[in-house]
Nucleic acid binder design. Sequence first.
DNA 1: CTCCCATAGTCAAGGATATGACTATTCAAC
DNA 2: GTTGAATAGTCATATCCTTGACTATGGGAG
Lengths: 213, 213
Amino acid sequence: MALRHAVLAALLDGELSGYQLAKAFDVGVANFWHALPQQLYAELARLEKEGLVAGRRVVQETRPAKRLFHVTDAGLAELERFAAAASKPSFVRDDLLVKVQAADHVDAGPLIRQVEERAAVAEAKIDLFRRILRKMRGDLGEEEFLRAGRRVGPYLTCLRGLAFEEGNRDWCLRTAAILRDRNAAVAGAGTPAVPGEGTAPAYRRPEVARAER
Amino acid sequence: MALRHAVLAALLDGELSGYQLAKAFDVGVANFWHALPQQLYAELARLEKEGLVAGRRVVQETRPAKRLFHVTDAGLAELERFAAAASKPSFVRDDLLVKVQAADHVDAGPLIRQVEERAAVAEAKIDLFRRILRKMRGDLGEEEFLRAGRRVGPYLTCLRGLAFEEGNRDWCLRTAAILRDRNAAVAGAGTPAVPGEGTAPAYRRPEVARAER
DNA sequence: CTCCCATAGTCAAGGATATGACTATTCAAC
DNA sequence: GTTGAATAGTCATATCCTTGACTATGGGAG
């Protein structure tokens, strides 16, 4: 039930429309939470009904009208309550890690490609985050901004996003190199397609007949 | 729909009972996926019905009987298919980051405590991961193990977990220090409880009367 | 002149996850 | 001698999240 609080936190920086929120919570920039547009519009409706945010309609000339939302005092109080409550630990849930976990038992080719692609994605995010951070701190140096700047929350979460993506990139590059080496070694030793099968799996499945292959 | 593949990947290292799986997917060790026991038992039942895993009953003397599951050839094929398909990017979803995003608008005290507690949790996980890695590579050095070891998938995902927790710890410690400094600075300047309110929020809420406070 | 993209927002359906409780046995501590 | 932790597993409910649509307008590319 933290999506609502993520929305409240995002609206602290100023009024946003649902559409703008959706972009902020989209892949690429969502440093502290991720959500799809449908969720956000639904959550905004709930938050408004409960009086935690309020919206005002803004008519535009060249674009469809939009509704800009801001956090009410009740919303701020709710955020305060949330921030003081215990946080549950966060979990890893990543398709790619599941695949790497199985790396010794599946075809290495597609996996290596995916890991390398992820490294490129991480690199792009790193660039983006660096630009965002520069923009947020303006003329000030990082240390100075963090000491005296008036709004450091988003800066700090962006720093976490940056460090995460740097870790991601480094790990992906190393993992890809390792899998490539192993794949080449096994291929050189004569086993053609599936390297894991060449290097004796740690666990021989019992009672299941290993047909063909 | 990746939980099933995470279960398959976990069972590659040998037979496991639902209970053992649950421990592996619990907080603390789940390097590549996290899930609750209920989910795992349900998923195991589905996987068995579809013939992707098979279980055998093992009666024990001092403990209740258990069912040990292993991946079938069909399961391995399914995992192969999954590994070759495109992975969707993974997302950040962390209560604590939401709170830090709102750091300038909420009471800093409880937040700082939580960030420091998270740093301690990360430190404990780092120790745990280092022990697990040492155990997995045995006598070999890391480079050597990754070149020649016969099962590196779990080692690689554990390395990612280690790097993640190191990043977590470093960020938490730095963030806590920054928030402490800022809190002390504002308290010294005369504002008592809520420091964010002392430093002029970037956005003045319109049309909403700012009662008392 | 048409097609696609960006803006702005909504609906329905179903799968995935979380919360909380519950059974049953054994060992070890108090 | 009863309570508590660990083993082993299950059920029900509720909420969350994802998938895949769909409406509508305006601007720019080709």
